[in-house]
Design a protein around this nucleic acid. Sequence first.
DNA 1: GTCTATACTCTGATAGAC
DNA 2: GTCTATCAGAGTATAGAC
Lengths: 217, 217
Amino acid sequence: MSDPNPRPSRAQQRRRTERNILAAARQLFAELGYDRTTIRAVGRAAGVDAGLVMHYFGSKDELFSRATEPPVADPAAAGIPPDETPVGPPAGAGQAAEALLASLAGRLDGEPVASLAVLRSMLTNPEAADRYRALAESQLSQITAGIPTGDAELRASLLGAIVHGVIIERYLLRLGRLADASPEQIIDLLRPCFRLLTTAEAPAPTHPPAPHDGPGA
Amino acid sequence: MSDPNPRPSRAQQRRRTERNILAAARQLFAELGYDRTTIRAVGRAAGVDAGLVMHYFGSKDELFSRATEPPVADPAAAGIPPDETPVGPPAGAGQAAEALLASLAGRLDGEPVASLAVLRSMLTNPEAADRYRALAESQLSQITAGIPTGDAELRASLLGAIVHGVIIERYLLRLGRLADASPEQIIDLLRPCFRLLTTAEAPAPTHPPAPHDGPGA
DNA sequence: GTCTATACTCTGATAGAC
DNA sequence: GTCTATCAGAGTATAGAC
């Protein structure tokens, strides 16, 4: 044997190092955020020179864009139907809660690094904020479609805020018991909440605040 | 009249410019986050030289610390009883939800700038993250105390995540309808959720996912 | 006490050597 | 194609002039 292709033919090699760079960038962006991640550190982590990173991607913004775009490069090659949106189908009536819970369950063990990179930087980087908004709004419209009440948009926004609050405290802040709780535990606690928010319930069945002021003094 | 104190006596003047610098720093930290806020910009916004900012606070970290610490400098002078914790008393049984809702309602119109500065930077700045953790854990223990179930800690963490998710999307991301909704609307929608999470309910009264798989294909 | 000038480091980005 | 050398600029922090 004379090794049919000992070197993967330039183009393949290029794609290979490009993938390495993107993987390293994703990791660093997710850990440190946009500002604190330097091109030099990305190059170091990928085993290449910082100049090469710039040569491939042109700018730090472009590198961030490429590193955080959804990893579905070619769904045909992976054998995954591209129409499978990860958030779940709109479904009818009360199934919106379960679809959302299923989506959350998937994210509660093993949120993809690209997504964490966006989340980490969205509060301090305008581009990351835009990317988050785009992602969130597409999910919002799906959730809104499954809620029958008139204030569906606000309810959907609330649900999105809950989901992302949980993800942030679990992965990015490692706060409280949320960091090590099992996905099932969290899902089970949130299920009734999500059911309430996705279906029309009596708005104020329980006495809101105690009307009588003055404690036991 | 010869103006009893035309110039406020150095020390007063110093406190005055110091307060100006702190106010400008709070604003910029809340808008841009720690990294993108520069000492020069703080000085410019406060109308003083950047070197003076350094002279007063020594370092950017110290400036951030001072700018984000709770504004209750001297409660005696303000006439506010210092024991009044802003999160609400532990209370008994089912009042934990109302106390938490009241705290959230207060934050939903006019979250203090110092708090926003911490929230904005907590994902990318370790010091801000620590400050947030300290604040969150003190609230967590209070909330936990009001929840009778065995998994009170996880429930409290979840409640904290919800609150902060809402605050983040409302003020920092301006997302969806959460940005302009009235506090009452949000509170009313969250009330049943909070009641569920602060009291022991049947864990799975509703059929979780539909056991029959296979959609209408 | 207040402010100006500057030192030093590090960033992203560019030009050119191999 | 890959990498070294370097640029221009901004950052924090310091020293010294008024």
